[in-house]
């Protein structure tokens, strides 16, 4: 299966759930998927044995500073589920708000996703429902609650911390 056909297959598989499809690079397709449809979309890819989960990348998308008089816009978090099949890359792009960063867990479909999901929880503050383990993974056990290092609002401890 060459790259183009692979991407076409992915597109037809994800047709029911993809809100928009873009192709930033010849070997890479982005599918924007609603959080509610994520499980079904992943299931469809896996059922068709389309590649494997390469990574889940979290991205913080803080709202730009509001213009005069406007109400502040809502900040978002995006999770990119990247699937690789040969040279082809399919990205499922799921966006949630800071206020309610809830995503379903895909660990039932792909057990190895647990590590990425835990990273999302710890580093970005996602709330992933039904993920098997939620312990601290990388950060020390005494890490403060509700501080997520990879969010843009986090800028270190400002030197107040000392050994």
């Amino acid at each position: 299966m060459d790259t183009t056909t692979a991407l076409e297959t992915a597109q037809s598989l994800l047709q029911p759930w993809a809100q928009t499809v873009t192709q930033p690079e010849p070997h890479r397709s982005d599918f924007v998927v609603a959080p509610a449809d994520l499980l079904a979309a992943v299931q469809a890819l896996m059922d068709a044995r389309w590649g494997y989960l390469g990574a889940i990348t979290g991205v913080d998308l803080p709202a730009p500073a509001p213009a005069e008089g406007q109400p502040p816009a809502e900040s978002h978090l995006a999770a990119l589920y990247q699937f690789f099949n040969g040279a082809a890359v399919a990205t499922l792009r799921v966006t949630v708000t800071h206020a309610q960063p809830v995503l379903p867990s895909i660990c039932d479909i792909i057990p190895s996703a647990t590590i990425y999901e835990r990273e999302l929880i710890e580093m970005f503050g996602f709330d992933i429902e039904n993920t098997p383990v939620t312990d601290h993974l990388l950060l020390p056990d005494d890490w403060p609650q509700n501080v997520y290092p990879l969010r843009k609002s986090f800028t270190g401890f400002g030197g107040a911390e000392s050994a």
């Binding site: 950060l139 020390p140 290092p149 986090f154 270190g156 401890f157 911390e161 050994a163």
Partner: peptide, 8 residues
Amino acid sequence: HGSYNVMG
């Protein structure tokens, strides 16, 4: 240097 998880 300057990383949040590094004490120096």
